[in-house]
């Protein structure tokens, strides 16, 4: 009996894929809140920004597990058609943006200017929407869409 069957990877994908989705959404909320309250409390904004940074970093790291397990479920198919194709159409830009934002934040840390952080949050929002659409298509696949 094989351990690393497609069913095993599907279970791993199901378990791991929710982490980057949830962590990206949380990071976006933290960073957006930091931007909005900065005028009232610089200290709280810094704390929220810090929370957003570490949440984003964790989301980016765990996204590799989600991507790898997903590829193993579908036999390394990176595009595909139907619901799988749509799932991939959203997941790759979302994954790329998530990695790019995480690396940028890691490089600039607390030296980022307000306009740059605002741009970063805008990109995070785009990545979040794409990630949620990808998750929705994953749900369609689970319900039997092809």
């Amino acid at each position: 009996m094989q351990l690393f069957t497609p069913k095993f990877w599907a279970d791993v994908h199901g378990g791991s894929t929710h982490f980057p989705i949830a962590l990206l959404v949380a990071a976006t909320v933290f960073d957006l809140a930091a931007l909005l309250i900065r005028a009232r409390s610089e200290e709280r904004a810094r704390d929220l920004q810090s929370a957003g940074f570490y949440t984003l970093l964790m989301g980016a790291l765990v996204s590799f597990a989600a991507v790898l397990s997903g590829l193993l479920v579908v036999g390394w198919e990176t595009l595909g058609s139907g619901a799988l194709g749509l799932h991939h159409r959203y997941v790759w830009p979302a994954f790329g943006l998530l990695i790019a934002i995480a690396i940028w934040r890691l490089l600039v840390r607390n030296r980022a200017s307000q306009p740059s952080l605002a741009t970063c949050v805008a990109v995070e929002i785009v990545a979040t929407v794409l990630m949620l659409l990808s998750g929705y298509q994953g749900g369609v696949l689970l319900q039997g869409g092809a």
Partner: peptide, 13 residues
């Protein structure tokens, strides 16, 4: 940093 991040992301993809 943005350039490095973009290049790294595209490389990973």
């Amino acid at each position: 940093a943005a350039l490095i991040a973009a290049v790294a992301s595209l490389t990973i993809l």
